[in-house]
Design a protein around this nucleic acid. Sequence first.
DNA 1: TGGGAGTGCTTTTTT
DNA 2: AGCACTCCCA
Length: 732
Amino acid sequence: MSDLLANLNAPQLQAVTLPPVHALILAGAGSGKTRVLTTRIAWLMSTNQVGPHGVLAVTFTNKASKEMTARLSALVPINTRGMWIGTFHGLCNRLLRAHYREAGLPQTFQILDSGDQLSMVKRLLKNLNIDDEKFPPRELCHFINANKEQGIRAAQAEAYDGYTQKRVELYAEYETQCNREGVVDFAELLLRCYELLNRNEPLCKHYQERFRYILVDEFQDTNRLQYSWLQLLAGGGAKVFAVGDDDQSIYGFRGAEVGNMRDFERDYAGQNVIRLEQNYRSHGNILAAANALIKNNRERLGKNLWTDAGDGEPIRAYEAYSDIDEARFIVDEIRELVRDGVSPTQMAILYRSNAQSRVLEHELFAKSVPYKVYGGLRFFERQEIKHALAYLRLLGNPDDDTAFLRVVNFPTRGIGARSLENLQASAHQMNSSLYNAAASLSGKAGQTVGAFIRLIESLRQETENLPLPEMVEHIIEKTGLGQHYRLEKEGQERLENLDELINAAATFVDAEGAIGEGGALVSFLTHASLEAGEHQAGEGDEAVQLMSVHAAKGLEFDVVFISGLEQGLFPHENSVNQGREGLEEERRLMKRKALAAEMPGREGLEEERRLMYVAVTRARQRLYVSCAQTRMLHGQTRYCVPSAFLDEIPANLLLKLNKKAAPAATSFGSGSYAAEPAAGGLRMGQTVEHAKFGIGVIVSTEGRGADARVQVNFGGSGMKWLALEYAKLTPV
DNA sequence: TGGGAGTGCTTTTTT
DNA sequence: AGCACTCCCA
C-alpha cells in the first residue's frame, strides 16, 4: 500500500487518493498521467473501496488500454482479464455482444471499418443511381459519422436545404442497408450501445449499479456521444475520474470536443479539479518554449508546466534553403549524435503531414541511417488480408454484401460487372442480400454465381469443426487466394502476409482461450476490425523514428526534430482557412456557428498550435526546429515563409545554427508571415540583384509555386517580368 | 480480363 | 511528383 503511493508528488497523491467524487485531472504533458490513472485504480481496489468488477476504465486506443492493463497488473496482484478496461469501441462492442438481442443485432454482427463503410456508401449511390460527383462518397461517410457522433439518427437529422435533405435521405438508406446486412460501423457501435442503455432501463440500471468508478483517459478527445454515454453510465451514482489535457487536444477535426472538459467541470467535477503541472520529461528550455507557445491560445483551462530539471540545452533552429537541404541537415545531425552514442531509437523526426517523410527517407537511405516510418497501411487493412477476411465474414454472415462483393470475383471466376448488376437488381427487388438473391439468377450469371455460392457453402461445411488457424489456412487455399498470389509476380509479400494471418489466428486463439460454439471466428473478425494492427511498428530495431506529430502524441524521445515549420504547412493552411466546405459543415453540425463567425479560423489555428505544443513536449533533452525556404509540394516548388510558431518561441531559448546568411529574403523573427505570402518569399518593394539586369526593385508579384513571377524595375535596364523558377534573383 | 492511358487529388487518424 | 481510380481497348 505505502509502496503504491510512494514517490507521488503532492497533486498526484491528492488525485490518486480522492474520495468518491467526480474529478477532473488536468494532466500536462509528461506529468505522470497514466501513472495517476492506474495508481488510482490500484489504490481503490487495494483499499477495498471497490472490486475489479466495479471499475470501468476507458481509453481511446488499444495501445493505451493495453498499457493501462499492463501497468495495473504490475501494481496489484490481480487478474485484470475480466476487468472492463478498454477502448470506447471495444467496451461498446462487448456490451452489444452481451445484449445483441436487445440491441436488435444478429449474434454474429460484423464491424465495418472505414474502408468497408466507404465501399458500402459507394455501392448505395450506384444502386440508387445517384451522381457521386454531387455526393462524394467520402463526404457522405463523414456526414453520416458526424451525425452519429452527435447522437443523431437519420430520422432526427435536420435539413434546411435540399442538398442536406438528400444527404439525410441517403443516411437513412445507409442505415437500412446496414441493418439488412447485420453490420455496424465504428460510430454505430457507440450510438447503438448508447441507445441500448438509454431505452432499456433495467439493463442500464444494472450497469449503473455495477460500475462504481469510471475512469477516462484522454478526456479532451471525447466527442459528444461519448460524453453522453459516460453520463448515462454514471447516472446511478458512479464517480467519474476524467484525465485529460486541453492543450493536447488535436483531434477536433474528427469530432473531439474539448468543450467536454469545461462541461464536465461545470456539471460534475466542480471543486475537484486537480492540475498536474510538474513535468518529469523535458528540460527547462523545452518546457519554456512549450509554455510560451501555448500561451497564445485563448481557449484554455490554464496550466503551466514546470520542471525540477535544469534548463538543459537551447533549442536548435535551422533555416534551410530547401526541403532537401533541411533533410541533409537533420540527417547530418543524427549521424553526429549517433557517433556521440545516442541511440537512434531515441531520436524522432516529426512532421505535419506524411508526404514530408519522402525527402527525409531519401536522405536517410542515402546516408545508410536505419529508420522506421510510422503511418501507412496496417496489417488488417492490406488487400490480401481483407480478401481472406471477407471469405471468413461470408461464412459467418452470408448477408454481408460488402464482403460478398469483395471476393465474389476474386480470384476471378468470370463473374463480370453485368452479372453483378443483374444480381444487385434482383436483390434490390427481393429486398434481400446478394447471397440470397443469387438463386434467382438464370443463364450464365446463374451458373457462375451459383458456383461461388456452392464454394462458400462447401467451405462452411469443411471448416465447421476446424480450429481457427486451420480454418483460415483452408480458406486461403480452397478459395484460390493462395494460388492467385503464388502466380502473381509481386505476390511474395502478400503470401507472407497471408501466412502471418494464420499465425495471427493462432496467437489470437491462444490469447483468448477456448471460445466455444464457433464464437472464435466472430471474435477474431471483431478483433481484426477493432484492432487493425500496429502501424508497422517493428520494434527492437536500432532505427530513427519518423512520424507525423499526431502519431507522436503520447510518446517521448531524447532528441526530437520538428521539420517543415513553414506557414501553410505547419500551421497547415487547410486548418486555418475558414472557407473549406467540410469545415463549414462541421461547424454547422457542432452548432458552433456563432463562435466560428466571431473569429474565423481561430479555432483552426489554435488546434495547430496545440499540435506544435504536442510536438515540442515530446523532447526530453534536445529539440531541433527547422524550416525550408523552398519545398517540393504536389510536384511544384513552393516558396515558403517560416512558421509563425517559430516567432512564438522566445529568442533567448533559440540557438540558430545557420552557418551563413541564406540567399533569400526571409529569416526568423521577421514577422513577415503576417503579410500576404509574397511569391517566392520575396516582397514588394524589395531590392534584388539579377546577374544580367543588375539591381532592381520588385514592383508586383503574380502566381505561386512554379508559376510565380515578379515584376522588377531594373531602372536603366527597364521593367521586367521574371519567372522565379528560372531567374536568379538575390535579395540585396 | 487485364493492362495501359488518362484524370484528379493531395492534413492530421482511431476505432 | 505520386498514387488511386476510371475508362477503354485488345
